[in-house]
Amino acid sequence: MASATTVRPKIALTLGDPAGVGPELAAKLLARPETLQKAEVYILADRSELADAEAAAGVTIPLADEPTPGFAVLLDDNSAPAEPIVKQKVSVEAGARVKHQLLRALAMARDGKIGAIVFAPLNKTSLHLAGMHEQDELRWFATELGHTGVTSELNVLPGLFTARVTSHVPLSQVAENITQPAVVAAINLLHETLRDAGNPAPRLGVCALNPHAGENGNFGREEIDIIAPGIEEAVALGIDAKGPFPSDTIFIAAKRGDFDGVVTMYHDQGQIAMKLIGFDSGVTIQGGLPVVIATPAHGTAFDIVGKGVANLGATAHAFDLAVEIASRRPTSD
């Protein structure tokens, strides 16, 4: 998709969990000439941390003191811990480092200095050890930004976006959290995000909750009483949405190009399919927030840290998607 403007968007980039593959992936991304031509990139890290990331990736990142095409700007606040953070381990120290840099990025977003945040993979357990009380980083971001509107993790592959009505809740609580307003909100959020990403007329498919889409109420009535009315309400708003379709077939249709986006009812209903279709290019967008925030959909991959085999695909896709969407949301700075 082509950007709507030639102005380079302003992106804050953090290295992710220092115990995982995030720093080396960020270094590989920043060493690509095309990355630093697409956007003004502000790296939130200390110089020593960036040097370690460069060494792990075997690259050199071109830096400048001012935004310059082909160069990144390092915002070093000299806050790195005195003792190195242990690699390949969950720790409060690693979580605290991630939080520190993400808070800096959120402050830049609040001040209108950037249009998007891209963060390399983090570890939720380390973040919780470091004091993140929300169930996931999306809710934490919303809290820090004072945002009370609809939010949802959006999972993205090239050519296919997904949103979900419920997310990080136990399966035993999924059905009770599926309401008609929640279905409409998820459909609308996915529709608007696809438009932000350059698709003027998104085609959406909506998953059923129950096997065989409930089979006319034999296996549950959520499709009849909640999901179908939610789809009808979204259609009345001018959204091209169809369903509910059984979740064991909807992604076959999506993969062949019938839909630009799929709304699922719960986390694994979409995540299993998306990771099977394209694990190495999957991206998570923190949907609904006032600032674009994107990250690769995979985790910190402790088992391959330092081996030089971490795949850049998802990180590069996250960056490109953040650039595309942020280019359509100019900052005030």
Results as ranks from 00 to 15, higher is better:
L145A: 06
L160V: 08
A142R: 02
A116N: 07
I114C: 12
R110M: 01
G131E: 04
L122N: 12
A116W: 04
S167I: 01
V118F: 12
A163D: 04
D136A: 15
D111I: 00
W140R: 02
L160W: 06
L106S: 04
G146E: 04
K99E: 11
A107F: 01
E134D: 12
A107C: 00
V118M: 07
E134I: 10
T148Q: 12
L127W: 11
H128V: 01
Q135A: 14
A163P: 04
G115P: 04
L103C: 08
R164G: 14
M108R: 13
G115M: 02
V98G: 06
F161T: 08
S152D: 09
I117Q: 07
L129D: 08
T162K: 00
H133C: 03
A120H: 00
A120R: 01
E144N: 14
A163I: 03
T148G: 00
H168E: 07
H128W: 12
W140T: 09
L145M: 08
T166K: 13
A116V: 04
A116D: 01
R110V: 09
D136K: 12
K99C: 11
A120E: 03
S167K: 07
F161Q: 02
L154P: 03
A116F: 04
A107S: 15
H147W: 15
I114H: 02
L103M: 15
P121N: 11
E144M: 10
F141E: 05
S167R: 09
A105P: 08
R139L: 12
R110W: 00
L129V: 05
H100F: 15
T162E: 00
M108A: 14
K99Y: 03
L138F: 05
V165R: 14
E134H: 08
A163R: 07
L129Y: 13
V98P: 06
V156P: 07
S126D: 13
E144I: 04
G115I: 01
S126T: 10
L160I: 11
T151Y: 02
S167P: 02
T143D: 09
V98S: 14
L154D: 06
F119K: 05
R110H: 08
K113P: 02
N155V: 12
T151W: 02
A109L: 00
L122I: 15
A142V: 02
V150F: 05
K99D: 10
L138R: 09
N123F: 11
D136M: 06
F119I: 01
T151V: 15
E153R: 02
V156D: 10
S167D: 15
A130D: 14
G146L: 09
L160G: 10
I114R: 01
L122S: 13
P158A: 03
L127E: 13
Q101L: 06
W140D: 06
W140K: 09
P158C: 04
H128A: 13
K113F: 05
K99G: 06
M108G: 03
M108Y: 15
T166N: 14
K113L: 15
A130F: 15
E153P: 11
T148N: 11
R110G: 00
L138D: 03
T166L: 15
P158E: 10
W140L: 05
L154Q: 12
V98M: 11
E134K: 08
L138N: 07
T166D: 12
N155W: 06
T166P: 07
G149H: 09
H168D: 07
G146V: 00
F161S: 03
A107Y: 01
T148Y: 02
A163G: 15
V165E: 10
F119L: 10
